[in-house]
Design a protein around this nucleic acid. Sequence first.
DNA 1: AGACCATATTAGCTTTGCCTAAATACTGGA
DNA 2: TCCAGTATTTAGGCAAAGCTAATATGGTCT
Lengths: 217, 217
Amino acid sequence: MKTEAIEDYLKNIYLSGRSGTKVSLTLLAKKLEVKPASVSGMIKRLEGMNLVKNSKKTGIILTDAGEKIALEVIRHHRLIESFLVEALGVPWNEVHEQAEKWEHMLSEKIEDRIDQMLGYPTHDPHGDPIPKRDGSVPETSDTPLNTLKAGDVGKIERINDQNPEILEYIGKLGLYPQTRFRILEVGPLNDLISLEVGDEKVQIGLEVARRIFVTVG
Amino acid sequence: MKTEAIEDYLKNIYLSGRSGTKVSLTLLAKKLEVKPASVSGMIKRLEGMNLVKNSKKTGIILTDAGEKIALEVIRHHRLIESFLVEALGVPWNEVHEQAEKWEHMLSEKIEDRIDQMLGYPTHDPHGDPIPKRDGSVPETSDTPLNTLKAGDVGKIERINDQNPEILEYIGKLGLYPQTRFRILEVGPLNDLISLEVGDEKVQIGLEVARRIFVTVG
DNA sequence: AGACCATATTAGCTTTGCCTAAATACTGGA
DNA sequence: TCCAGTATTTAGGCAAAGCTAATATGGTCT
Ligand SMILES: [Mn+2]
Ligand SMILES: [Mn+2]
Ligand SMILES: [Mn+2]
Ligand SMILES: [Mn+2]
């Protein structure tokens, strides 16, 4: 009825759609590491279950029922990531893979207990919002670090990447969510940003800056 | 190659065989809640993979390769149970169900980290031995509580049941692993045992006593 | 318009893991 | 020995989830 594959499809449709992008079969196929033909079939099935709609103008979009499931899986994922970091001290770049598996089989009881034990967290270790039981989703920043200018002060909110190497790199620079910073200098081609974090001076390139979302002020 | 179903089969063959009982298709079908015809097919497949052997005299037995996998899954299961009890405070009667799911997808890294965080535990919350990485299995008691006589003193080692209600019942009586006790009285038909646990007096029936394994002395 | 490239769909096939129903094999007692 | 009941196997099917190969659609550029 609600298989692991279905959950993964819905989750990826939700996450791909977030950024305003139209979700196509091929895009989804890439995300799910599966052939477009397979996606075509599955989307048809999901339409039959009233979990998604598909049209060339809108692309693939979730119905309310579909979004509900997507949010539940994402909630599981992010609670598990938080739990592994908090309770087990797993580095933030190693939790994604495990959460990816466990998210599909988290009992309601354990889910609640994790939530409670962590003090009903609103964001996971990467700063991504943890959807609530009722389906509401806490706020997130959509301002990438590379749009700021010299002199700006702000706080890191979220790192938009799950690649372990990249996360490790960013972590080594001390750029975790909730970290305050000041922009010291921006290169003329916008490809290098110098910032002050605590007492440290840190340089990052454009590609990394793109993945770091912040609030200014 | 090594699916969830395969792991469940091997695990159940191992656990059913432990008690010296010959493992038949029908027994296994009962444990796995699956029809005998399905088991017949799967056992054939497992034989082809050299994970089990089957003959009418021996019943179904694991090969070395099969046992290796079985022990690995059991190790996962029991580490996860321990982790949930220790790190999350989940009651001992609620951890089995969750471990049953997660056991099939525990990464080596997280496995090691749990092991270390718990101080390399040898037994799970129910007193069952946690197989080590190298495939060795810590000692367990095979003496059921109902074989003792009045005056005997001992320690509870293991509760051989995963039914949440029964575990809750036993827990309420305070009969956890590592608990010391003294037998006060045994009914003439062996169907009721009175024991002293701490300062408390506790009565248990035969069926419960059968499931509690102890060391004497 | 025509050619080309990307995208989407369809048909047909494979594996896994289960099912039912029917056929066999085995075993213990009368 | 024979027979009933139990255990096992076989045959035939089904649903999920993927794959390849072939076809259709659709826009963009010349
Ligand atoms: Mn997943
Ligand atoms: Mn995350
Ligand atoms: Mn299992
Ligand atoms: Mn246990």
